[in-house]
Design a protein around this nucleic acid. Sequence first.
DNA 1: AAAATATTCAACCAAAAGGTTGACAAAGGC
DNA 2: GCCTTTGTCAACCTTTTGGTTGAATATTTT
Lengths: 125, 125
Amino acid sequence: MVKYSSTALDNVFLALADPTRRAMLGNLAKQSLSVGELAAPYEMSLAAASKHIKLLERAGLIERTVQGRTHLCRLNAMPMHAGMEWIRHYEQFWTARLDALAALLCAEDEAAAKAARKKPRRKGQ
Amino acid sequence: MVKYSSTALDNVFLALADPTRRAMLGNLAKQSLSVGELAAPYEMSLAAASKHIKLLERAGLIERTVQGRTHLCRLNAMPMHAGMEWIRHYEQFWTARLDALAALLCAEDEAAAKAARKKPRRKGQ
DNA sequence: AAAATATTCAACCAAAAGGTTGACAAAGGC
DNA sequence: GCCTTTGTCAACCTTTTGGTTGAATATTTT
């Protein structure tokens, strides 16, 4: 039995667990950006943004190519795939809940309609 | 413009960013479990496991009903839905990459086949 | 060669995560 | 009533996050 070497998934989910980093990925979805451009929208030092970028890199979500003095970052969404697949296994559980809710609401409607047919009233409950 | 109040997503992704907690959710997928039962498989104190459970609760992934002295925990996968939806927006990016890879491999095959037809050889490249 | 630009690095700080232990509280069994 | 079981809480520790600043590095511009 292997202990667990699931650090890949750990790193991906951890990287996604911060609004700044998620926003950065959102910006990279439109186009590749330099570190400075990536950092610009946020009220924090460049060094702080640089750390976020490094964390994203660790998760494999960003790849970097150094062009002279600027570092161009591009999105690599691939590691998200594993995260999505992990979550997908639980999809049945929430859809089951949603179905149950729908059924419940539906039953309420039915009951209301039935009651309305039996002894109709005007206005109010 | 709202700053961002995306703490729900933060909490869900953070909760999923740990193998112990993911394993706990996996166990709850089979059946609801008490805190003790949830903690049992892991080599850590009950207090430590209790903290993991609390973090999962904070993310809304676990709901608890106190029955006498035992606390029964049941899975609520619903908050994962938001996480999955967030990731899904990036699906196009990794499928694009996979398609490109497939195309590349396909092209290699084609080229190899073509070469084989032009000047066939036996064994080796 | 000097100055400006783009980025990291190192040192530091506060807060949170992840763990421990020991004490406490509530409920159940004898 | 007492002991055991179930679980939390509080105090403490270490490591990691998330941020700061100032210095160092590498590249481009002038």
